[in-house]
Design a binder for these strands. Sequence first.
DNA 1: ATATTATATATAAAAGTTTATGTATAAATC
DNA 2: GATTTATACATAAACTTTTATATATAATAT
Lengths: 183, 183
Amino acid sequence: MLRHALLGILNYHPMNGYEIKQFMDQSTSHFWYAKLSQIYTTLKALEQDGLLVSEVQPQEDRPDRRVYTITAAGQTALRAWLAEPLTQIDQTKEPLLLKLFFSAQLDKEAILAQLHIQRALYQRLLETHRSQTAALIKEAVEHQPHLKRDALLWESTRRLGELSTELYVRWLDETIAQIQEHF
Amino acid sequence: MLRHALLGILNYHPMNGYEIKQFMDQSTSHFWYAKLSQIYTTLKALEQDGLLVSEVQPQEDRPDRRVYTITAAGQTALRAWLAEPLTQIDQTKEPLLLKLFFSAQLDKEAILAQLHIQRALYQRLLETHRSQTAALIKEAVEHQPHLKRDALLWESTRRLGELSTELYVRWLDETIAQIQEHF
DNA sequence: ATATTATATATAAAAGTTTATGTATAAATC
DNA sequence: GATTTATACATAAACTTTTATATATAATAT
């Protein structure tokens, strides 16, 4: 799946691995993320398959940059993946819920402490979605007006991130209250 | 992580791999799932580490069942994992959002078609959360009153499943409308 | 009649992902 | 002055997960 993400990103413009990592951290990380090591090896694999080509840009003082460009074959592969409809629901994995599910083993205070930590984290994430992520999309369209349709879709993914983080905070409050009263 | 899930499940009572799969499909699948093949190999690994022991129960007409029981070391490991607080947000991966993010490549009708498919799927899942999953928890407590505290936590995970599926459907409607108007 | 689903386990191979390690320098922070 | 963060790549090892294959029978659905 990361393969497709990388093709999608490089379809905007050529980039090196480090830049791709930053792009993902800022835009897709709430629904797709990857470690740098995985990005580098996947880029290499995509080049071997002819979906990307790379060229080294020498730099002084810093390691040279290897910049990847999508090929015609890469664009075809990207479009094929986009066109193929998802006919099943994405099954996700959430360690917090898994742990909570079995937490009757713990005492009340330990459970509550963990939920409070999570609440703080999600509250902070919510603010990021609302300010930073929103600003980045707005800025991108201002500089590149041809990305207007892309931005509409980016905004909808950001919106779900905001809504579900909001929901998570509400659910944590609800759950904390439930446990405080009935556990 | 599956290791901990299996310890958590077997801490209720001894089970064989096939039963564990069914248990997960019915209860944890919206936040943790696994294929049978992975369950079998992980059970074996846990036994090698001394966290489980197994015994074969012969059956006629069907393959024998290998029933796993958690050991004292397994219970210690389970509790250690439960006690260790999560200090970061779970990063999840959602193929639908990844695809949507790059879908400006597609035409309007193709995007809308994909979103409508997802809406139908999530609508059906919502009903499952509300009826089946809720009923299973209720039934479990009726038969085993000592699981009351567990059930409170199970119910909170079910509740998040219901709430976020509901949200997903609403977001899909919102997104479909946005695209219809502005894409 | 035929195909699928359910019961039950097992293993190999492939694919995907994370963790650890190594190199090198500049800038920023403490 | 010392440590951390940022820039930039690369690779090996470990771990996790999926896909495919094999076996065997009963019950159910088409």
